[in-house]
Design a protein around this nucleic acid. Structure first.
Lengths: 334, 334
DNA sequence: CTGTTAGCGCCTTCAC
DNA sequence: GTGAAGGCGCTAACAG
């Protein structure tokens, strides 16, 4: 068993209260006794027990992070952003995967409450009323990240997915595309993809060009590839806009299999700006800022909430932009 | 403020000890009183405070996971494997990134101790004596994952990287390759890459063929690409074996830029079997089982340690295998 | 089967 | 500036 605050107090010849004070810098302690305490701490290599501290202070310095699936490339980057900022503010994160299942998400919020996390960072493909109810019940500071509450009841950091999709259409039209297909999963729920699809359709309508919707059962590379290959057999559109980068890579491969040149015959635009966009051939034009920044901003937002720093808005809308790479631009000389 | 165990006890007309008993199923309680307690719990929507429980029981049901960087694709998959199994055994994970820096790693072990984690899953590119010392000091059940302790002092789950590399050389030789290059970072420390390099060299020697070592300052796609392109200018080997999948993709692209056909002109073999291998063109031949399984096995191992289940060996060596895909085999018809 | 009683290790008023 | 004392919410003997 290791040293407790009492051991340190005895060693330093002071009371435990004083030890607590120097540990937490919570009141002025005479320089000399402070020194004695510090020496005792070092001598016993004392480490405060965070659990006991949590019980007494009701603050655990840990925040819960609920994501659908870390193993998705962009989620991992996002989590890294969260962790870096958390670390900067001396928080730790408990990471949970929900697979986007409502039951599990609700359960996790409860479990995180049990663990007495100081706050919650929540990501989900779609937010339903039940989520909101669960959040309210939990009475925890919560920030949604890359997850939209249309009513703006919950603090969130997000980009304007609809507008971003419109911008992509405009961008492709400016590039001379007269027909554009949108690729994403259709599941009847309000998802990020739906937001993007809506924007896409708005953009199409505004520009008065041809469009096509390619619906997927899910948004993975493996699922998308055969479906896209098949779609291209009956004539490919001039451009493809996918709901995320992974799908865009599937589109690239499907196009290549159909002997279509990128970007000469078909342009491709992804979404999320993950590392994948740099590791694909041709490099992928994509939308928005890095997932890392996304997570970082969300975590910073939460720390503000937790320390009662003034907040200007509870619905942070991150700027988005289109990063032009090879899949829509003349090939660079290699 | 939410309900405590006292509130439930009062509501059910029993003592808090009984409530605790039904919560933890730690002793037989009469069916009827149990029912009353359960009703009280439901009525007050009582949730036990895990922190208080942790303080009293000295077990927090959380384990610390220290990784170099979750945002690396394979690490994310590995972490997912860990989390799934952790969840299965009702553990939660605190995830920390160390960037492979010794100081930070040591510090994190200490902080995890403060948080009273029940155990630690530790990943690092290289293990030094200082790590061992830190672990011993912490007195925590620890399992190394994808990290080797050559002396076998710390429980670990790993593959035989050296043998795997030998197997790759044999495999490529059987394919008719007379010259093979190894690509990886050289940093003077004992790393996974070094293990693989050693195996590579042994294989080369045994087969008596030509070899080349291409040393990188780090193991990222962006770093590798230009270096490999340059290397290929002065004549490419018949095969490339890289320390990980990401580098293998760089090799593919470098080869393609040099107008080399894969696998006709040059074969490429990666390492780790990440999702990337399926998302590359040509699909990448790679070594070992999935990172997900890796994490899952390691976590399961830790749960055994934590529950004193019998353990046959403290050094779990996972079987490895070569998964042949397009980068070393005739192209499949698409 | 159930209740009583100590703590777990620390924070936090209060007095001094 | 420092000490004493009372919790935080729960588990775990120990009685009954």
């Amino acid at each position: 068993m290791s040293a407790t605050i009492y051991d340190v107090a005895r060693e330093a010849g002071v009371s435990m209260a004083t030890v607590s004070r120097v540990m937490n810098d919570t009141a002025v302690v005479k320089e000399e006794t402070k020194k004695r305490v510090l020496e005792a701490i070092a001598k016993l290599s004392y480490r405060p027990n965070a659990i006991a501290r949590g019980l007494a202070s009701k603050r655990t310095k840990t925040i819960g992070v609920i994501v659908p699936d870390v193993s998705a490339a962009f989620m991992a980057e996002l989590v890294r952003g969260i962790e870096d900022i958390a670390n900067m503010y001396h928080y730790h994160i408990i990471l949970c995967n929900s697979d986007g299942q409502l039951d599990r998400e609700k359960d996790l919020v409860g479990t995180m409450w049990e663990k007495q996390v100081d706050g919650l960072l929540f990501m989900s493909p779609r937010l339903q009323q039940e989520h909101i109810d669960t959040f309210e019940e939990a009475q925890l500071p919560i920030v949604l990240c890359r997850t939209d509450d249309p009513e703006g009841r919950i603090p969130s950091v997000n980009i304007n997915n609809r507008q971003a999709a419109i911008d992509v259409v405009d961008y492709l039209v400016a590039k001379g595309c007269k027909s554009i297909a949108f690729v994403g999963a259709q599941n009847g729920l309000r998802t990020l993809t739906d937001e993007r699809r809506v924007g896409f359709l708005q953009g199409i309508q505004r520009n008065g060009i041809d469009s096509q919707l390619i619906e997927l059962p899910n948004e993975t590379y493996a699922t998308a590839l055969p479906i896209l290959k098949n779609a291209f057999k009956q004539g490919a559109p001039r451009a493809i806009f996918t709901a995320n980068d992974e799908l865009a890579i599937a589109a690239e491969h499907a196009a290549q299999d159909a002997s279509l040149r990128i970007p000469e015959d078909i342009m491709i635009v992804g979404f999320d700006n993950t590392k994948l966009t740099e590791m694909s051939r041709p490099a992928l034009t994509t939308v928005t800022q890095s997932m890392y920044d996304y997570g970082a901003v969300a975590m910073r937002f939460l720390t503000k909430l937790l320390s009662d720093e003034p907040i200007s808005t509870y619905t942070v809308v991150l700027p988005h932009q289109i990063l032009e790479k090879e899949s829509t631009a003349p090939r660079l000389i290699r």
